[in-house]
Design a protein around this nucleic acid. Structure first.
Lengths: 231, 231
DNA sequence: TGTACATCAGTGAACGCGCGTTCACTGATGTAC
DNA sequence: TGTACATCAGTGAACGCGCGTTCACTGATGTAC
C-alpha cells in the first residue's frame, strides 16, 4: 500500500509548484536579476519570510529553477524523439534539433538561464550537471543508434588524434558504437545547434537572416551530412 | 592648426576613461548586475551625483561599455589579421578565429556582455550595431578576398535557394565576390566560432573537452574546409 | 591685458525605493500511545 | 477514540544594506569684449 500523502504534504508540494511558477514568470519578465523572493511572496499573498519554509535562500530557489529548466528541455527533446522512434537517423536528428530550438523559443529566458551568461559566483550542484546532459544525450543516442545499425561508417578520418583535446572516456560513454574519429564532428554538431539558437535568440542574426526556421532546417541538414547520418 | 584641447576637455576625457575602466572592472568582478554608479563614484573618490556630469543614466554608461567592448574586440581581430596580410586565406582564417577566442578569454565578462544573455529591456543604439559587425567583417573579408583571388570556386551548391531564409542584399554587401551558394556556409562558420567560444566560456565543455585550445584549432580547420579556403 | 559673465565639475543632502535574511511568535496539522 | 506533544506554515517586525536619480549649491575654468 502506498502511503497516501498527508494533506500537509500535498499543500507543501502545491506551494513549491506555485513558488517556482511565479519565479519563472518573474525571470521571463525581468531577467534573472529581477527575481526577488519578496516579489514572489507578494504575488502569492504571503509574507516574505514565509518562503524560507521552502527554500533556504534565493540561490537555492534559483538552483531549483535551473534544474527544472534543464529537465524540462530534456523531457521535451526526449518526447519528440520518442514520437519518431524507428525512423531514419536523419529524420530523428531533424526532429530533435527542432525540439531544442522550439523549446528555446518558447522559454527564451529559461534558455538564457541555461545557455547564456553564467550567473556570477553561482556553482552548479552535481544534480544540475546531470540534468544538463539530458537533451544532449538524445542527440548522442541518435548518432549511436545509427552507427550501430549501419555498420559504423567512419566519416572523415583526418588521421588526427582526437585524444589530444577530448576526454575520450567521458565522450565514449555517451557515444557507444561511434568511432573515435567521429567524436569531433559530434561535438561540433551539438555546439552548432546551441550556437545557432543562442545567436538567434540573443539577436545576432538581425540583419542577415530573414527566416530562421527555414535556415535552421537547412543548417540541421548540413550537420547531418557532417555526421554522415543515414537517410 | 588643430585647436589644442582645453585643460578642462583633457580632464573630462580622463574622467570618462576612468569611469569606464572602473565600471569594466566591476562588471568583471560581479557581473553586469553588479555595476552600480554609486560604487563607481565611491572608487573614484567622487560623490555619486557627480557621475551625472558624464552619463545621464546607468543605461547610458552600459551602452558606452558595450560599444567599447565591440570596438575593442573588432580592433583586436583587425590587428591580428593585418599582421598576416598577404598570407593564405586558410592562415588568415586561423589567425582571425584565434584572435576572437583569445580576446574572449582575456575579457570573459565583456564577451558575456556582447554574446551572452541580453540585458532585459536594453535596446542597442545603431552605433552599437555597427560596431558589432567589426569582428565579423574581418571574417567576411578573408572569404571575400579568397574568392576574388582564386576564381570564385563554389563549394557545395546544394541547389537550394538561399534567398528563402537569408537577407541576401545585406549579406552580399559584406561578401563581395562570394557566390550566393556559399552564404550559408559562411554564416555557419561565424556562428560556429562564437558558439564554440560561448560554450567554452560558459562552461558547457566541462567533462568532454580536455584542451579547448587544440580543439578550437581543429574546429577552425574543419570550418575552413567547409568554406573551401585556399591553402 | 583685464574684466564680466557663462559654463561646467563636483558637493551634500534628500527622496523613495527594494532587497535578503533573522527571529520570536501563533495556530493549525500530524503522530504516538 | 482521545489525549499530549512535536512538527510545521505562516506572521510581523526588524536589521542593515544598497540603489538610481534630483536638486540647489559652490568654486573653479573658459570665453567674449
Amino acid at each position: 500500500v502506498p502511503p497516501s500523502p498527508t494533506p500537509r504534504a500535498v499543500a507543501r508540494a502545491a506551494q513549491i509548484a506555485t513558488i517556482k511558477a511565479v519565479a519563472q514568470r518573474l525571470i521571463a519578465e525581468r531577467g534573472v536579476a529581477g527575481l526577488s523572493l519578496r516579489e514572489v511572496a507578494r504575488e502569492m499573498g504571503l509574507v516574505s519570510s514565509a518562503l524560507y519554509r521552502y527554500y533556504a535562500s534565493r540561490d537555492e530557489l534559483l538552483t531549483a529553477l535551473i534544474l527544472d529548466a534543464y529537465n524540462d528541455l530534456g523531457a521535451a527533446v526526449e518526447r519528440a524523439d520518442a514520437r519518431h522512434a524507428g525512423e531514419s537517423a536523419r529524420q530523428r536528428w531533424r526532429v530533435a534539433a527542432r525540439a531544442i530550438r522550439t523549446w528555446a523559443k518558447r522559454h527564451p529566458h529559461q534558455y538564457g538561464l541555461l545557455y547564456g551568461t553564467p550567473v556570477p559566483d553561482y556553482q552548479a550542484p552535481p544534480l544540475t550537471i546531470e540534468a544538463a546532459t539530458r537533451s544532449t544525450r538524445v542527440l548522442c543516442n541518435i548518432l549511436s543508434d545509427d552507427r550501430r545499425a549501419g555498420g559504423a561508417s567512419v566519416t572523415t578520418s583526418s588521421g588526427r588524434d582526437v585524444r589530444r583535446f577530448l576526454m575520450v572516456d567521458g565522450v565514449a560513454a555517451m557515444l557507444p558504437g561511434v568511432a573515435e574519429d567521429d567524436y569531433l564532428a559530434a561535438l561540433m554538431a551539438w555546439t552548432h545547434i546551441f550556437g545557432f539558437v543562442s545567436f538567434e535568440l540573443f539577436g545576432h542574426y538581425v540583419g542577415s537572416v530573414r527566416n530562421a526556421t527555414l535556415m535552421f532546417d537547412e543548417v540541421t541538414d548540413r550537420l547531418a551530412d557532417l555526421l554522415d547520418l543515414s537517410d
